[in-house]
Design a protein around this nucleic acid. Structure first.
Lengths: 302, 302
DNA sequence: TCAAACTCATGCGTATTATGCATGAATGGA
DNA sequence: TCCATTCATGCATAATACGCATGAGTTTGA
């Protein structure tokens, strides 16, 4: 049963002639004749009684067509409205990012986003776990690290860099560190993610060769904000993204231990990445959030 | 947009896998993949987010499919119910017959029909006019005369014959008629139909040559029952079908003037004909009335 | 009353679409 | 790490849709 066949039948009912419907649809009348004949065969009863020059609906045909007309109309409307919803910024935007990114970067700018797009509701999944984006029904993810793999579309939001920091109290009590190699003998607060626990990477100057320093310590935390808090409390040395510590560095609550070195956990080529399901049929709500985040990054210059 | 594509999409939503749906429908998975892809292109947004080994509905997809699911179901139900109605004896049977046939033949047997088929309502169009059956939305017609022309199906209900009759009072007052030729000098009550007004046909014996007798009179009536009433009142000689006069003849209220002749208005090969739109997709209500009328004719032996 | 115009049905040939097979890329589970 | 499975897609073939041509029948206008 074809929906366009049903619409043709409804048109025949309204217009009263295969030939006239054929002219309206720019078809051959034989095609209309066959469409209706096939439909009658599919549904098992006759819709129209016809002679060589006229036709009229049968009583069953009339009942049936009157019944399906609103259904066909509503099916069309359902498609139109769903399409409109997909292309106009509305609905629930379900996104995920690390807890720290949510807290430090997203929450502060969400009021402006909500003000600009009042019809988009935000559902934030703050998680440091490597979520299954599809299973979680996520529209948009912000991920840090190397270029993510997979079939989802990836766009760079911003580059990131890391700093090795400690509190003034810690330095005063335990003494300064003159070189990254010294870290192997210090209490480091490590991130509970493979690659963050055991080696930190360093490079002095843009072209210089990088080197790894083994790190360890009594404290492993899964949450970057908590790592920052622990560092503030003098519990040790921490490697944290610049976005989390730039205010502490400015205030002097944390000190950048190796300002002449580029620092990283696993790779120097890290960034904040926007990850979304596909380019085709991208809902407008996702599109506008992507644009909004990119604009925010440009505005703040980081 | 195809209804079976929508049904496939609903099945994919429920089952969660192209491959599984393909197995259910005995299709190749590539066909399911293409059906969904085509549907997404037709409606202009993505229904399912998929990777190489899994898929999940998009939020728009979920909204859309939830909305159309009852519509699709109701379209199917509409077809099923209409088909059931067409094949089970129910609904309104709209039929037409001459006023006299309705009065003398149909009305008396309708109670039995209604008792047997209580869910069939009868709409009787009693008319001596040559109605446009299709325009009037007629399901079944009973017509007298020669074999009807046209594209509707025709089945003989019963043969008919005509008798020339007058009341005893008329004969007593005006004198008897010894031969049909005498009619041209008598007052005949004529039927207001071409072919009935100006000549009556006679034939004596099965193989004898027929002859026409010109008739006329001051009275032309469009209703056979009224012609009969007028004849009973002695207003003249009438040519009437046997079914209308057999009781009067038995009671002696009308006399058969030429019992040795076959009589006719236009042709000796006349009958009562059942006329219905087509053999294919014949609604059961029409079928059962046809069968009922034929059985009634067999039962009464006329 | 007759001829022309029109409608609907259908045969036929061609264009278009649907389908399965084969294959590749990617993912998930053992 | 490897194998099984899923989804996408190229390709060839099968199936269907379509227009053209034609015929039968009806309706309308001259």
């Amino acid at each position: 049963m074809d929906l366009s066949a049903l619409k043709t039948a409804l048109l025949v009912r309204d217009v009263g002639s295969f030939a006239a419907v054929a002219r309206l649809l720019d078809l051959d009348a034989s095609s209309v004749s066959r469409v209706i004949a096939q439909l009658e065969q599919d549904i098992g009863f006759r819709l129209f009684q016809r002679s060589t020059r006229s036709l009229a609906p049968t009583s069953e045909g009339e009942l049936y067509l009157n019944r399906i007309a609103p259904l066909v109309e509503e099916l069309e409307a359902a498609g139109d409205e769903a399409r409109t919803t997909a292309i106009s910024p509305r609905g629930i935007l379900r996104m995920t990012a690390s807890i720290s990114f949510v807290q430090e970067c997203l929450i502060p700018i969400l009021p402006e986003f909500r003000k600009r797009y009042p019809e988009i509701d935000i559902e934030l999944l703050a998680s440091d776990a490597n979520l299954d984006l599809r299973a979680e029904g996520v529209d948009l993810a912000v991920r840090f690290g190397s270029l993510p793999k997979g079939d989802w579309i990836v766009a760079k939001l911003m580059t990131t860099s890391y700093r090795v920091v400690a509190s003034p109290e810690y330095i005063e009590e335990k003494g300064p560190l003159s070189h990254p190699d010294d870290l192997s003998e210090r209490d480091c607060i490590c991130f509970a993610i493979p690659g963050f626990r055991t080696y930190w990477q360093f490079r002095k100057g843009g072209d210089a060769e990088s080197f790894s320093v083994p790190v360890g310590g009594a404290t492993v935390i899964s949450n970057a904000l908590s790592i920052r808090s622990a560092a503030r409390l003098g519990m040790g040395v921490a490697l944290l993204p610049i976005m989390l510590v730039q205010r502490d560095l400015a205030k002097g609550t944390l000190l950048d231990l190796f300002p002449d070195h580029a620092c990283a956990a696993t790779s120097f080529e890290t960034a904040a990445w926007l990850i979304y399901p596909s380019r085709s049929y991208l809902p407008q709500k996702v599109r506008v959030m992507i644009d909004f985040l990119k604009a925010e990054v440009r505005r703040s210059g980081s």
